[in-house]
Computed example of a mutant assay.
Amino acid sequence: MREVGSVDPLDRLISTLRMGDGADAGIANGIEVAAQRWRTLPRAQVAGRTRAGRTTVAGALGLQPGVETAPVDEPGFPDPVLDADIVVYVLASTPSPGDRRILASLRPERTILVLNKADAIGTSWADAVNASRKFGQEFGLPAFPLVGSLAARTVSGAFQESDLALLRRLAQSGTAAAVSAEAFVSPAVGPDTAARTELLEHWDLYGLACVLAALEREPELAPQIVLQILHTVSGIDPVARLLGQRYQQAISRRAGTLIDELTRLAARAVPHGGSRARALITEYLDTDEARWLGLCGGLVDPEVAHLAAGYPRPEPEDADDALARAIRWRAVVAGEMSPAARRAAVRVHNGYVRMWERMSSVGL
């Protein structure tokens, strides 16, 4: 861990090079650009056709306003350029030819496919799960069913005790068996038609059916528990978890890109006169911080990421785990692979060697 108040090693490297000759100052500029790119937060886009629910899904995931792209496959307009670190692609039905064209071009490690309005697919949640699985397999992308409107309301809304009292009465009377909006708001159910209509408009039939089913089993559920149930049945949790993982992977990719750029700058920095660029960059690349960044970047490299799929986290559990990982990645490096994959594997191996040294005190 870096001590509080300590100078960032990259900033110190840049500052030192700026005080050198003209060539070193130019290299400092290159390092600063690379460092700024690494420190910039990953960017997300939410894409899909008109009325697929892009804005609703973005809100349900807590993404900043403005991440929605222009609609895909809009007559008279070009398709949006999907070049963000993470793309959440929203479907609301069977993919159109335009959807298929775009989805076929997206990279799996940067994309999440969401089948929105899942409550309108088939007759049960299982139908929506099967449909999303089918589309995910077709396009080679992780895919999830979602009721985005319900998920968004659980983020910003709340259940009142008065609403629950009404729903408890309906659950006890058997209205939970109603399968249509018309039956739910029917005057025959009771005099509180206006209140039921308001509940239906806010939570939709799918959400209310889930609440009624829960209240049939446990009538005294508290409002916050009911909200948590709705949040879960909306399908948002697995999407949000993968989105968080994608953000971490994007940060790791940028870390790997930073190490690649520093390595290139060091190779181009021909020592002459008073130039210290190559020596100083090489010194930084041998620090614990740089080794860690290189390890993280290597683990998410698309050509070798599958080899780390069994790791619960990048950090090893202890010195023995670090050594076992280092030995495994040494074997990977010795295998047949592309130069880019070998560079990634070498960085993972070197990173785990350094962690083993630190954990076992060998490197102290």
Results as ranks from 00 to 15, higher is better:
Arg2Lys: 05
Val4Gly: 13
Pro9Trp: 06
Asp11His: 14
Ile14Asn: 04
Ser15Lys: 12
Gly20Thr: 02
Asp24Tyr: 07
Ala25Ile: 04
Ala28Val: 06
Ile31Asp: 10
Ala35Ile: 08
Arg37Pro: 04
Arg37Lys: 10
Ala44Cys: 15
Val46Ala: 12
Gln64His: 05
Gln64Ile: 05
Asp79Ser: 03
Asp83Ala: 02
Val87Ser: 05
Ala92Gln: 02
Thr94Asn: 15
Asp99His: 02
Ala104Gln: 12
Ser105Asp: 02
Glu109Ser: 10
Ile112Trp: 02
Lys117Pro: 03
Thr123Trp: 14
Thr123Gly: 15
Ser124Pro: 11
Ala126Met: 14
Ala131Asp: 13
Gly140Val: 01
Leu141Thr: 06
Phe144Gln: 00
Pro145Trp: 01
Leu150Gly: 04
Gln160Trp: 12
Ser173Gly: 15
Gly174His: 10
Ala181Val: 08
Glu182Gly: 11
Ser186Thr: 10
Val189Thr: 10
Thr193Asp: 07
Leu200Met: 06
Glu201Met: 14
Arg217Met: 01
Glu218Thr: 14
Ala222Thr: 14
Gln224Pro: 07
Gly235Ile: 03
Leu262Asp: 02
Arg264Ser: 13
Ala266Thr: 04
Ala266Asp: 05
Val270Cys: 10
Ser275Gly: 03
Ser275Glu: 01
Ile281Phe: 01
Leu285Glu: 03
Cys296Asn: 14
Gly297Lys: 08
Gly297Ala: 02
Leu299Ile: 07
Leu299Ala: 06
Ala308Phe: 06
Arg313Glu: 13
Ala319Asp: 13
Asp320Thr: 11
Val333Met: 11
Gly335Pro: 08
Pro339Glu: 08
Arg347Leu: 09
Asn350Tyr: 01
Arg354His: 11
Arg354Ser: 13
